[in-house]
Every structure is written in C-alpha cells, then in structure tokens.
Amino acid sequence: MLDDRARMEAAKKEKVEQILAEFQLQEEDLKKVMRRMQKEMDRGLRLETHEEASVKMLPTYVRSTPEGSEVGDFLSLDLGGTNFRVMLVKVGEGEEGQWSVKTKHQMYSIPEDAMTGTAEMLFDYISECISDFLDKHQMKHKKLPLGFTFSFPVRHEDIDKGILLNWTKGFKASGAEGNNVVGLLRDAIKRRGDFEMDVVAMVNDTVATMISCYYEDHQCEVGMIVGTGCNACYMEEMQNVELVEGDEGRMCVNTEWGAFGDSGELDEFLLEYDRLVDESSANPGQQLYEKLIGGKYMGELVRLVLLRLVDENLLFHGEASEQLRTRGAFETRFVSQVESDTGDRKQIYNILSTLGLRPSTTDCDIVRRACESVSTRAAHMCSAGLAGVINRMRESRSEDVMRITVGVDGSVYKLHPSFKERFHASVRRLTPSCEITFIESEEGSGRGAALVSAVACKKACMLGQ
C-alpha cells in the first residue's frame, strides 16, 4: 500500500517536472537572447534605426563620474514606483581627507489618484512632500541643488532636461508624456511658492545606482535594477552614441532593455503563462523582457503555473481556492519566502493557508518547484541581457580580458534567497573573457542622484555659470 502511494507521488512529481521543464533555458538559448539583445542595442544607438529599435539606448548626458572633490548639501528625489523618497545628502571631506556622503531620508507613498490623475496632481503632491521634508529638517530658507531620480523612459536633451516617452509600472498621470519632466517639477514648486529649489540633474535609477557604486569602486561602469521592473545602464564610447554629437570619451546610456521583445525577438521563448500575464497587464505587448524578470510579474506567473497544475490534477487534489483564482493573489514576496523555507515546509504551508488552501507535504514541495522554475528562468533571462552589455563593452574597448564592476539594486536581487547566485553564475558562463565584480548599492537611487548633481554643480562652477 505504502509502495503504491510512494509510486503515485513519484509519478505525480515526474509529471510536474515535465510541465515545469518549459521554463528551462539551455545555454544556447541564452546565447541567442544575448546576441539578439546586442543587435537591438546597436539599432538603438544608431541614428537611422533608433526610432524602430525596441531597446532605445537613451543617452543620459552623464559623462563624468564623481571624483571626490564636490562638497555641499544636496536634496535628492526618487520616483520610480508607488513609494517616493526625499533625501538630504551631505557631501563633504571625511576623516583623513576621505570623501564622505551622509544621508537623511523619508519615504512617502503615492496615492492612487496622483498616479493615475493628471501630471499637475502628481507633481503638486511631490512638491508637497518636499515642503514637508524641508519643514522637518528646518531647511526651507536654503535654496538647495536638487537631483531627481526618475525611473521611467526619458529622452534627455541635457542633464536637466528630459522628455517622458511613456509611463510604465502602473503610472498613468495624463499630460506628462511628451513633456519635460524637470519643467513639470519646477512648475509645481513655483505653484507652491513656499520654498526654492535648483533642479540641476535628472537621472534614471540605473544611472543613480551606477554612480553610487562608483563611489565604492571606481571600476563600476554598469548599473542595473532588478526590482519591480528590470533595466540597466553602462558607459558607452561616445563615438557609438549617434544621437549625441561628439566622439570623445564616454557617456552613460540608459538601455531601457525592459522593452526588448516588443518587436518579436522573444516570441519563441514566451510561454502561455507569459501571454496571460501580458494580456492582463496595463501595457499589453510592451516591456516583454521586463515581464519575464521583474517583481511586478513574478508572483503572478507562479500563480498561473499553480492553476495549470491544479487543472492537471497534480496539486491540491485538483481544487483551487477562490483566493488562488484571484489575479495578483500570489505576491512576489511569497516566491522569495517559499524558496527561503528551511525544509520543514512550515513557511510554505503558512503562505498557502493564507490563500485558503490546506496543502499536503507533496503540495508544498511542488509549489516550491514552481517558484524555483519561474525565478530561475528570470535570473537566466536577466543574465543574457547583462552578458550582452558586458561583452559589447569588452569588444568596443578591444580588451582581451576586461575587469568590470556592476552596481545592482532592486528588491528581487536583494531579497530573493537564490536569485543573485543563479544570476551571477549564468552571467559568468556567458562572459568567459571578463572578470566581473557585483556590488549592491546602498540607498543607491538617492545618493547617486545627489552625486550626479554634485558633478553638475562642479561643472557649472568651472564653466562660470
């Protein structure tokens, strides 16, 4: 009897593995994704193909990295998701002549009506938060230079001027797309009239992360975010950046690689679950690469896999709870928690219980395998993109072996128990001629924006502006 049951459990697990095998990517698959990513990057950089390229390769006008001589107080704003952060950054000489960066910050959550109302409502709310922060720190009387981390696709015309191309991540505030974001912020500050600010720089969160990590390690020339969304930036040779005049030196390019796949480059790798996630998203047909990796989508992918296993009578005796059938019910943090389970399955059992399920031991094991399959594919897909960037940098610099540091931020990278190990191992397999160091950014977005502002202020002083 026991043997029969054991055989049935083994057969069930084997069927589960057959279904989950769809998520496995072979090294040849990853090399294919990497080569296609490089081709799209090239198209994004070139003037004649930029418009139709899915990977936009947006110039950021960040050319210099901090040298350690900029000092002063800077205000930093960070808008990239449902939370908005205001930070005071003091850049100065530390002990023994070292450079020191001290920060104080406060988080504000953005109400739904500000995210989806008008641009005026959104930026009025942001300036209200700045006003509140300055009151708390008794700094209303000071006109501070301000660095703005704005983590949406922007076409820069200068370091302090950028046109919002399109909202992502659930934002829909009308009247912002096609307009200068810094102008919208300046107008809102003017409307309030109770404080003055000098907006000197606007950067993407990947750029802010790279600059913040450069402060720790001067070989950091790539910034990457794996959180709600997924994106990367890197220092490109100016001669390859056709959208900006000049051939000397390097400029940081914001790849906006989340949109890779929007022209069909990933079609052969998309599964039924991916198509369902895409169809029910706020932007169907867009940001397809990001939807395979980002935390906004990972939990939902797992939920759809679990429903398939229920329908195949391989999980929960073929019956799903009402909660499990509800879109968004299986949160991405559950994926991390399930994979963090120590082996007694308590954590998995508790999560499934909150979803109205009474799982068996085998159910718990199957749910864990589903989570591992989805998150491992995410790590491997992400590795193909980064390997594409790094191999490109090595080739354009004609280096036999390139040493490089990548600064990384984002909740999936930082909080998932195995993502970074799987990701690092896969990147290294795909970049055999590179020695890569990964560092995690601390308060990256805010500190990085302030350091970019410090560079901009120093330049302005040198130019006598």
Rank of each mutant, 00 (worst) to 15 (best):
T65L: 15
A11V: 13
L324F: 10
C371V: 06
D113P: 12
I126T: 05
E290K: 08
F171P: 00
T376M: 12
M202I: 04
I159P: 02
L307C: 08
T342D: 10
L88C: 09
N204Y: 15
T149V: 02
S396W: 05
F269P: 05
F133S: 06
K161T: 09
E112T: 11
G227A: 15
E14R: 13
R422Y: 12
A6C: 08
L266R: 03
V71Y: 12
E40P: 02
P432G: 11
D278L: 07
S353H: 05
V335E: 06
G264M: 13
E237K: 14
F334G: 15
K102I: 02
R308W: 10
L185N: 08
G81A: 03
A232Q: 04
N204A: 04
Q38N: 09
R35G: 08
L463W: 12
D205R: 05
D247T: 15
S281H: 12
D42C: 09
E67P: 15
L463A: 13
D274E: 06
Q347V: 13
L314E: 06
L276H: 15
R394Q: 13
C252E: 04
R43Y: 13
C371N: 09
F84I: 05
G193I: 06
A21P: 05
E421I: 10
D132L: 09
G448I: 01
K190S: 14
V277N: 15
D42R: 12
A176M: 08
D341L: 08
H380P: 03
A188I: 00
G318W: 07
C434R: 05
V91W: 04
V427H: 03
V55K: 03
K458R: 08
I436Q: 03
D135Q: 09
G385C: 04
D363T: 08
R303C: 03
V241N: 00
C233N: 00
D194A: 14
F269I: 07
T361V: 10
D132H: 08
H137Q: 13
S411R: 14
R186Q: 00
Q337C: 14
F133L: 05
G94L: 13
L20G: 07
R392T: 12
Q323D: 14
G261Q: 00
E9P: 14
F195W: 02
V305A: 10
L77G: 03
F334R: 13
E395Q: 05
D3E: 08
I126R: 05
H317S: 15
H218A: 15
C252I: 15
F423P: 07
L77A: 05
L430D: 06
G407S: 08
R325Q: 07
V302L: 08
V389W: 13
R333Q: 00
A460Q: 15
L324T: 14
G80S: 00
R63K: 14
E96D: 11
E440P: 06
G183T: 13
K39E: 12
E128S: 12
S375P: 02
I126E: 04
I110F: 05
T60E: 03
D363A: 08
A259T: 07
D78K: 01
G264N: 04
K420T: 07
Y297H: 11
L309W: 08
C233W: 04
V389I: 11
R308K: 04
L2H: 06
V62N: 03
L306F: 08
S100R: 10
N83F: 03
M393G: 06
S373I: 11
S433D: 14
N283L: 05
A119Q: 14
A188L: 11
R429C: 09
G94H: 12
R43V: 13
I126M: 03
G81I: 10
G285I: 00
Y61T: 05
P145A: 14
K143E: 06
S64N: 15
D113S: 10
R85A: 01
G385E: 02
R403P: 11
K420A: 12
F195D: 03
A176G: 01
S396R: 09
S76K: 03
E177V: 15
G223H: 00
Q347F: 12
N313F: 13
G448W: 00
M298C: 11
T116N: 09
C461W: 13
K31E: 12
R275W: 13
I110K: 01
Q465C: 11
D344I: 06
L463H: 13
V374S: 06
T168H: 02
Y289R: 01
V182E: 02
M210I: 06
G249V: 00
W167Q: 01
S131E: 05
E300R: 04
Y214M: 15
I163Q: 00
G444Q: 02
M8A: 07
E372M: 11
D365F: 07
V200S: 05
L20F: 14
Q18T: 14
D42E: 09
D278I: 06
I366H: 09
M34H: 03
N179C: 09
Q18W: 08
G261S: 02
K172A: 10
G193M: 12
R333P: 07
C230I: 05
R397I: 11
L355T: 12
T116W: 03
A449Y: 00
S54M: 10
E300A: 09
L451M: 06
D205Q: 00
L271K: 15
V222T: 05
R186C: 01
K142W: 01
Y215P: 04
S453Q: 09
L324R: 03
I366C: 10
R250I: 14
V16A: 12
E236T: 00
N231G: 03
S445I: 02
R428H: 10
S174E: 04
K172L: 03
D160R: 01
A456G: 15
S441G: 12
Y234V: 14
V367T: 13
E196L: 02
Q347A: 11
D158L: 02
E27Y: 07
F316L: 13
V226P: 01
E40Y: 02
I163A: 03
N313P: 08
M139S: 06
P59S: 01
E17P: 14
G446T: 15
T209G: 02
V412N: 03
I351Y: 11
S383G: 13
L25E: 05
L79H: 04
M393L: 13
A456P: 13
E268W: 11
C364K: 13
Q347L: 12
E28D: 09
E242F: 06
A259E: 02
V62C: 05
N240T: 09
D341P: 11
D344L: 13
K15L: 14
A460L: 15
A454W: 12
